[in-house]
Amino acid sequence: ASTLAFIETTKEGTVSPSSLSALSAAEKLGQPVTALLLGNEAKKAVDYLKSNLKCSNLEKIILSSDESFDNYLPEIVSPTVVDLLKNDKFSHFVISSSSVGKNVLPRISALLDYQPICDITEIKDPNTFVRPIYAGNIISTIECTQDKKLISVRASAFDKIPQGTTENVEVEEITTNASELKPQIEWVSANIVKSDRPDLGTASRVIAGGRALKDKETFENLLNPLASKLNAAIGATRAAVDTGFCDNSLQVGQTGKVVAPELYIAVGVSGAIQHLAGMKNSKVIVAINNDPDAPIFKASDIGIVGDLYEIIPELTEKL
């Protein structure tokens, strides 16, 4: 038995933050791990992995530098992964439930005639997994009776793989048919919101703003300095996104990102059930709101009632 772990690269040739969690989930299965890296940055990312990350169970790296894999179109990625997984030696496949993982894993699974186990938050044993359903309102424990287990992992639920080095690992460069596939769909462009802040999905600290912040300018003026001071990612409620305070990609909740940082500071957030679903597994939750009856206080560890325009600048200064 061994595990094939799909590792996403960044445009800079490093390993994506969510794949750092996928790697540690793969290690947790306690079997030899083969890492798979695809695309133009694969070689650079393999070097990065070997000299920056400590993967104790990693026995092999498979890579293809074919740029057809860039942007991870499922129509191109799936056939290669399907081919590799047909090998009997792989009992497990692990991928992060990033937007790439969510897109490719079900397609790969259907092509192999397996039901995957998606967005797991815990590995009980190599056949048993925990995954939240009903937007985290119910926690289910699932046993997989198929001979192969195809899993996507929620990055915020697993520690990142530790830093260090990984030596004496076999690297195999494979040739695939990726460049010959001519899917009827074409990747045109990506528009990634530029930010110097940590990635919201994997940040260890998150500052989130709600509708009480009135407008875009107030949202930015109050939250940016605090986030910079704490090196935190910025998030928002659906109400704040819908009113135009910030970009849609910052939405935390049932229909947005699900986060579980060490520290979550909710500023002017009322605490709707849909928002709580996206952040209630955070380690320490702080609520700052001028409404003493806001439901968010029931979901927090530390609460303070008062004027946001006074509290936030003072807090920023005193940290």
């Binding site: 969510s18 942007n71 990033s98 937007s99 009827q184 769909i185 074409e186 990747w187 045109v188 462009s189 990506a190 528009n191 990634i192 919101v193 930010s195 990635d199 919201l200 999905g201 970009d247 849609n248 990609s249």
Partner: peptide, 11 residues
Amino acid sequence: EIDGGEETLIS
């Protein structure tokens, strides 16, 4: 919608 932003496809 993708993590951190959006991408455009033509099919």
